[in-house]
Amino acid sequence: MKKRILSLLLTALLLFTACQSKPDYLGGELTGDAALDESVKALLTEVCDGSSDPLAAVYDWLCSELKYRANPGESVGIFTDENTISLAQETLDKRRCDCDGEAALTAVLLRRMGYDAEIVQGQFLRGEGGQWVDHAWVRCTIDGVFYHFDPLYDAHFGSGDLTSCFMATDAEMQATHSWE
């Protein structure tokens, strides 16, 4: 009898712990901006909850939800922690951005998911036979390998299945992107 009660208590404790613990996709780095961190948590929970592939779910969300709208008067120049945070917040609020805003939000989301994400500033080939233009996207190191994420490229110039620049390796990116 005692054993049974003990076993039940242990099960209840395990279930309680499981309910209280943060999902994997929220285990990464916070930005330090309370409002943004809260918005990011809400978004990741909405997008990733129940998904078997949270990273792909977030990438699909970025490709489909964000609308392109350039803001040439407010070019970031070099990314800093401060302008990354403000751009990510603005992009999350307004769902409109250029490549800077998209890269900032992508980086913030992936960092919160636990990935070592950095913003890459380089150039990309705009459309087939198009021109090389300044651009920003995100790169992560996973198991020692660089993987690139460029939702803006996928949304506008990709193959349609949103995988052209999802976890693309350096070699895969080099046909359409250049960077230092």
């Binding site: 392109y68 350039a70 040439p72 008067g73 250029d98 705009r126």
Partner: peptide, 27 residues
Amino acid sequence: EYAEAISCVYEGMDKTFTYGDVTFYTY
């Protein structure tokens, strides 16, 4: 105020024309 930059998406320049607190975005 007026600003322009090479478009990431369209061929040419994205522009903004600002009148006080109203901004027009063009492609």
